[in-house]
Design a protein around this nucleic acid. Structure first.
Lengths: 116, 116
DNA sequence: TTGACATATTCCGATATGGGAATATACTTC
DNA sequence: GAAGTATATTCCCATATCGGAATATGTCAA
């Protein structure tokens, strides 16, 4: 088995930095044209189209036709899965470092209590 | 150019589901042995060692020797980067859907105001 | 030392990537 | 319909992957 397809997952899709830039460029909720994104990121048009294709397949962006343009719009809700997963580890950074150790020690004590 | 190395980035490192499972298995802050993780995830030992290697290179986990065992411990703070990035898009899901449209429309109005 | 256990590393093969170049498709305007 | 613009698709290549199998390394215990 090789590496999972970039279109498998939101996690895989946003692993690529240019794709993250694209998402960021759409962060204000306003739809953008492929060419606008090309200029914004300074990449070749086919490159942008391909990256948008990945984001589209995963559902992070959606397209609508507007004459000879395509309007790409961010579907930010798809990123919630990643947010939720990382939020699980919030205690590792939010309540000072000591808090992490504290928690680990408390859990360790609970463990040994159960055992005895 | 091919796909970026999994060890390039936290984003790349956590794109792989087994790696996310490993991180989750260490979420309580307690260090674990490779074998404990092998049993926990039901994967082959070399597979686990390799995945842990990736997580280690990126800094998500750290190791310490304990006799013939290695204790892997989560370095959850490394996930903050991902958390922070996704948090940027919070408005897409936290304040009802309507809020997103509202925001987009408001920004659009500001734009057209500037233009006129 | 020998053997058992814990972990890491190497080699392999099938697979998907991302960029560049070229080309196809589609719409618009003349 | 022809030319021009916007976007998507295809082909190619160098590269890195993940898992499996085999093996290496390191540590403990007798």
């Amino acid at each position: 088995m090789a590496r999972a397809a970039t279109t498998t997952d939101v996690f895989n899709a946003i692993a690529e930095p240019r794709r993250r830039e694209l998402v960021t460029a759409l962060a204000d909720g306003q739809p953008r044209t492929v060419n606008e994104l090309v200029e914004r990121l300074g990449l070749a048009q086919p490159t942008v189209s391909k990256h948008l294709g990945v984001l589209r397949k995963v559902g992070i962006v959606s397209v609508s036709k507007d004459g000879q343009h395509r309007l790409y719009r961010l579907n930010g809700g798809e990123l919630k899965a990643v947010y939720d997963w990382t939020k699980t580890f919030e205690n590792f950074w939010s309540h000072q470092l000591s808090r992490v150790k504290e928690r680990a020690e408390r859990l360790a004590k609970e463990q040994s209590t159960k055992k005895s």
